[in-house]
Design a protein around this nucleic acid. Structure first.
Lengths: 346, 346
DNA sequence: AATGCTTATGTAAACGTTTACATTATAATA
DNA sequence: TATTATAATGTAAACGTTTACATAAGCATT
C-alpha cells in the first residue's frame, strides 16, 4: 500500500542498500546514482518508515514522559520544559498522562515500553515493584517527584525543605517574631518537608517556636480558610502566616479579609508553589516558586546521560532548587507582572 | 541483550509462534503448553517489544498531537482532552510541541510519522503543502484551529462568530444600545470572525451600528488599555465594550478603573477566551468560553473514525461550540468560582 | 487398515529498515 | 598483461514480532 524503500530501489534501478545509503547520506555513493535515487524518492514521494528504522538501529530517538492526571499550568510547564530539552538533544517526546491508579500506570508503562529510549516518570504513588515488573532494567528511567527510596533509580525532587526555610527566614527578616504555619496533609512528603523547613528556620532565626503556632491543613483552599479563622481568634495573634501551599494561602487570605484585618500591615502571609493566581489576588501573594522548567531540563539531561552511558552509572537523587518570590502579602512591593498565559487568540 | 520471544520459546521448548499465541491469548493452544510458556515468560521477565509488534501488525495504536509552542493552561487542557479520549479508545498519545516555524513543524512531522496511526495538528501557520510533503496521504489527519481552506483534510475550528454574537447579544439584553468593540489584529482569522459576530449581533438586536464604535487592537493587553482610553474620551461614550479577547479586556479594565469609571455600573465590559485570570480580577470579567475539552474530544473522535475507515470518507469542517460565561463585568452576579488549578502539592 | 477430520504445533515469510560482508568494476601498479 | 588496491554497489542477515500455511498427531468413521 505505502511506498517503501523497495519501490524506490526498483524505480532507481539500484539495491535497497544503496537507497538506504543515499538517505543516510553515506559518502561512498556515486554522485550519479545518488541523483537517480533522490529523483526516485521525489517522484514516488517516499517517506521512510521510522518503525523499521528503529527496529534496525535499536534506537527510537524518543523519550517518554508519564504524568499523573494532567491538570493546569503545572504539568503544561513540565511538558514544555521536557519537550524543549528533548528537542535540543534531538529526541522526540511521547507523553502519556491521566494515570491516577496503579493499574493505569502499568498499562501506560507497557504501552510506552519499546517506543522510547528512556522514560521520565512523574507519579506520586508509583512503587519500584511496578517499574521493575513492567520495564526492562536496561531502560533508563528518571523519577520526578516520586517518593521512592530505592537507590537504583535516578530521582529528582523539589527542595521543599529549603524553600520553606527560605520563605520563613524572609518573614523573619521582615521583623516577624511570631509566625504561624498552616500545614499540609499528614503523611504527605512535600508537606512534611515544608514543615521541617519552617521549624528549622524558626530555630535558625531565633523566632518563637511553639506547637500552638502550627495549624492543620490539607492543601485545600477551604482548609486554609478554616485555619486562618482559628488563628485570628487566638488571644495572642501571630504577626505572619506561612501556608504550606498557595491554595491554602488564598483561602487564608479570604478569611483574613473577611475579618477586616489588613494584609500585610496587620498580618503578613506567604504561600508555596507560586501558582499563577497568586499574582492576581489583592494583595499579591508572596510564594516559593519551583522552577518547573528546571525540573524538565534536569530530568531530560539526566535521562539523556543515562541513555548515552547505557544506563550503567551511579544513580543519584537530586533536589531541584526553589526561589522565594516576595510580593505584597509579606510587605514587599509588588514585582512586575509576569505574563503567564497565552491563549488561542494570541 | 534484552529478552525476546525467542528466548522464551527456547526456555519453554516451543516455537515462537506458540509463544506469540499464548501472549495474544489465542484459544487454540493447549492448557499445558500455555502454562509452560507463561512460566518461561515470568522467569525470564519477558517484555514484548512494541516496535516489532507494530511493524508486523502495521498499527502502532498511538495517535500524535502536534502543538505550537506550549504555553499556559490552554494547551494543557487540549492535551488533557485528547489524551483522555485517546485512552478511552485504547490509543496512546504522542505529543510534540514548541513548533513555531515551518521548519520545526516539518521535522516534527517527519519524526512522528510511522509512529502513529493518526495525527492531530494544531498550528496557526501550517499549510497544506507542508502536510502533503511530509506525511503519507494514507495517514489520517485532523486539523485543529488551523486556517486551511483545503477540503481534503478534516478540520475543527472555534466558533468565533457565534461566540461573539452571543456575547454581544447578551450585552444587548442587559439593555445596552451602544456597544463598542476592541478588535483583534487585522488578517487574523479569529479576530475577523469575532468582529463579524459582533456586527451581526448589533444588527439582529437593533442596536446602534457605527464604525466609530470599532476600535483597533491586536489582542495584547496594552492595545486594550489604549483602546479603552480612546473610547472613554469620546463625547458620546458607549455603555458597553466588547473586547475581542480577554487580554485586551483586562487592559481595558485597567484603563477604565484608572479613569475612575465604574464597571459595570457606568460601562459594561466583556471579553473572549475565558482565560483563568478573568475569574480573579475585580470585577470578574464576562467572557466566552471555548470548551477546550470538547475540542480534544471531537478531534480524537474524528481521528479514530478516520483511522477505522482507513481515511476513506468525506472530510469535513466542524465548528466547536462556545459558551457565554456571564460575570460581574457585564452586570451579572459573580458565579461560583471554578477551581482551575492543581498544583504539585495537591 | 485406510481415510478423513480436528486440533495443536511448527515453519517460514512478512513488516521496513540498516549494515556487515561479498561481489564487481575501475584504476593503479608491476 | 596480469595483479592488486580501491571504490561502488549488491546480497542477505538482522532487528522482534505476527500469521498464513504446512505438518503431525490423535481420533472417529468407513
Amino acid at each position: 500500500m505505502s511506498i517503501t524503500i523497495k519501490d524506490v530501489a526498483k524505480k532507481a534501478n539500484v539495491s535497497i542498500a544503496t537507497v538506504s545509503r543515499v538517505l543516510n547520506n553515506s559518502n561512498i555513493v556515486e554522485e550519479d546514482t545518488k541523483k537517480r535515487v533522490q529523483e526516485a524518492v521525489r517522484e514516488l514521494v517516499y517517506l521512510p518508515n521510522n518503525l523499521g528504522r528503529s527496529l534496525s538501529i535499536k534506537r527510537t530517538e524518543a523519550i517518554g514522559l508519564i504524568l499523573p492526571d494532567l491538570f493546569g499550568e503545572f504539568f503544561s510547564e513540565v511538558i514544555r520544559g521536557v519537550d524543549q530539552t528533548a528537542q535540543h538533544h534531538k529526541y522526540h517526546l511521547l507523553v502519556s498522562s491521566s494515570h491516577d491508579d496503579r493499574k493505569e500506570i502499568e498499562t501506560a508503562l507497557q504501552m510506552i515500553r519499546g517506543r522510547v529510549d528512556g522514560l521520565i516518570i512523574m507519579s506520586a504513588d508509583i512503587d519500584v515493584q511496578t517499574i521493575n515488573k513492567n520495564l526492562p532494567k536496561s531502560l533508563p528511567v528518571v523519577l520526578l517527584n516520586c517518593q521512592v527510596d530505592d537507590t537504583s533509580y535516578d530521582s529528582l525532587n523539589i527542595n521543599n525543605y529549603y524553600g520553606a526555610h527560605q520563605m520563613v527566614s524572609h518573614l523573619i527578616n521582615h521583623g516577624h517574631k511570631s509566625i504561624s504555619i498552616i500545614k499540609g496533609p499528614v503523611n504527605n512528603h512535600d508537606a512534611e518537608e515544608r514543615l521541617r523547613g519552617y521549624r528549622q528556620a524558626l530555630r535558625d532565626g531565633k523566632a518563637q517556636f511553639d506547637s500552638e503556632l502550627e495549624s492543620p491543613g490539607d492543601f485545600s483552599e477551604a482548609s486554609g480558610y478554616d485555619a486562618a479563622r482559628t488563628i485570628l481568634k487566638k488571644k495572642t495573634r501571630p504577626s505572619a502566616i506561612f501556608a504550606a501551599n498557595d491554595s491554602m494561602a488564598i483561602g487564608a487570605l479570604s478569611a483574613i479579609q473577611e475579618a477586616g484585618v489588613q494584609v500585610p500591615e496587620e498580618i503578613a502571609l506567604a504561600g508555596f508553589d507560586d501558582i499563577p493566581i497568586v499574582q492576581f489576588v489583592k494583595p499579591s501573594l508572596s510564594s516559593v516558586r519551583v522552577s518547573i522548567n528546571d525540573l524538565g531540563v534536569l530530568a531530560v539531561n539526566r535521562l539523556i546521560q543515562a541513555i548515552r552511558e547505557k544506563n550503567k552509572f551511579i544513580k543519584q537523587k537530586t533536589l531541584v532548587p526553589v526561589e522565594v518570590i516576595p510580593r505584597e502579602s509579606c510587605g514587599c512591593p509588588k514585582p512586575p507582572r509576569i505574563p503567564f498565559y497565552r491563549t488561542i487568540s494570541n
